[in-house]
Design a protein around this nucleic acid. Structure first.
Lengths: 230, 230
DNA sequence: GTTTGACCAATAATACAAAATTGGTCATAC
DNA sequence: GTATGACCAATTTTGTATTATTGGTCAAAC
């Protein structure tokens, strides 16, 4: 359905320009002219690709979303110790934290999202992209990666809360006082591993399968949703 | 040095009035007249007890702080399973979440603290009241309650991040969609217990001692700091 | 000796006109 | 067929004059 290249060269230039500017100044304070100038084209040209500023931003979300997914995939690949909650959780958070726009989206940072909030939070999309929703915890319990005596809703809430804390703690502890995030991720992962895995360690092989499926599903969701509004 | 009664009857009436109004409308939008009226006295009478609105708020912080400490102490007392990180962490968070003002202070909620922010965050007090600072983690490691192979700074950062997430997640998951907090606290405590305790469970007796000391120290700090500005 | 509330200077909220900016279009140029 | 940027309606921002509110005081009342 979609060609191999999802975005033309110039679309990428526009999206990169928008990404840079919006991540810094926010959606409201970034003008279409700014984006065009940064991309080295005229304002009119932007409207040749996207029918409105909001549409451009929506495309940007999917563009950056795929970037994060790629980053995540690579992190998992190059980590010999993946295939557990330990691995995924750590890498997923670090990957999201590394992308200003996805970070802002995940924490509903009004300074960045601004007036776009309405469109973004109106349909249920935000929730679907939420990592570690109940269904995933259920699957991981079925695969014997998470202890089965724990309540699904509580566990996914706890995981959501930890993720949110990770992404927002900087508001109260300045980054320069924070220890290296990679190390924090590793320790947090280790704590969760011990805290959530069943006695004896759990089935890593099955866990890896579930997580691979999740990632695949995420990418599919991303592309499908993009189709809706492109 | 201080009499048995730290606040006169009328001071308590004022503080309760201020607490109710400020927790709801915030520091900026709550006027001294409002507080006086709610307390059933005149505005002038308020200034018989506190020399400024800021001073009143500062007194309120200590007043509510002691309340939370009392609440925490009682929670721990009536829980047979205390004396572990498990117990304290769970109860400390639930106690703070139960007090709107302390909650706002711990999350530096500008809507509530408003213009008072300057005075509050200027000196180092905020940090000293921070639960689970590095020193505490150190002590808990010495008492063999937390595994010794974990890095102190990382663990205290992880604990801070989890606490912050617990207190702020409601901004992204509405309370009506959240599971019962008591249950969340219990599960989170259990996860941390497994995740942080050394093999074989650790020394509960020693842990209990450290935590009792901490609580005592907290109360002392609270009263001492209050002396400075009263 | 206490308590009050009218009073005041200072700050903050409101109203509103004028100026500037912005998303989006389209006749023109390439 | 593509790309441009002057152009426009609509919105936002800015400047400002006016009004309202608030923290804090203190002479008078209790």
């Amino acid at each position: 359905m979609t060609p191999d290249k999802l975005n033309s060269d110039r679309e990428i230039r526009i999206l990169e320009a928008a990404s840079k500017l919006i991540a810094h100044y926010g959606f409201d304070k970034t003008t279409v002219s700014d984006i065009a100038e940064e991309a080295g084209i005229s304002k009119g040209a932007v409207y040749l690709h996207y029918k409105s500023k909001e549409d451009l931003f929506e495309a940007l979300i999917y563009y950056e979303g795929e970037k994060v997914l790629d980053d995540l995939l690579q992190r998992i690949d190059s980590d010999p110790d993946s295939g557990s909650i330990f691995g995924l959780y750590q890498h997923a958070i670090l990957a999201s934290i590394g992308n200003p726009l996805v970070h802002a989206l995940m924490t509903s940072d009004m300074r960045i999202i601004g007036d776009f909030t309405r469109r973004w939070s109106s349909d249920g999309r935000v929730e679907r992209y939420n990592l570690f929703r109940t269904e995933l915890v259920e699957q991981l319990q079925a695969a014997n990666v998470i202890r089965r005596d724990l309540n699904v809703d509580i566990v996914s809430y706890v995981l959501a809360l930890i993720r949110y804390g990770f992404l927002t703690i900087h508001e109260v502890i300045p980054p320069e006082k924070a220890p290296p995030l990679e190390e924090v991720g590793r320790t947090l992962g280790a704590i969760l591993e011990r805290g959530l895995a069943p006695e004896g360690g759990g089935d890593r092989q099955a866990g890896k399968k579930v997580l691979e499926n999740l990632l695949l599903m995420m990418r599919q969701m991303l592309r499908q949703d993009r189709g809706i509004t492109s």
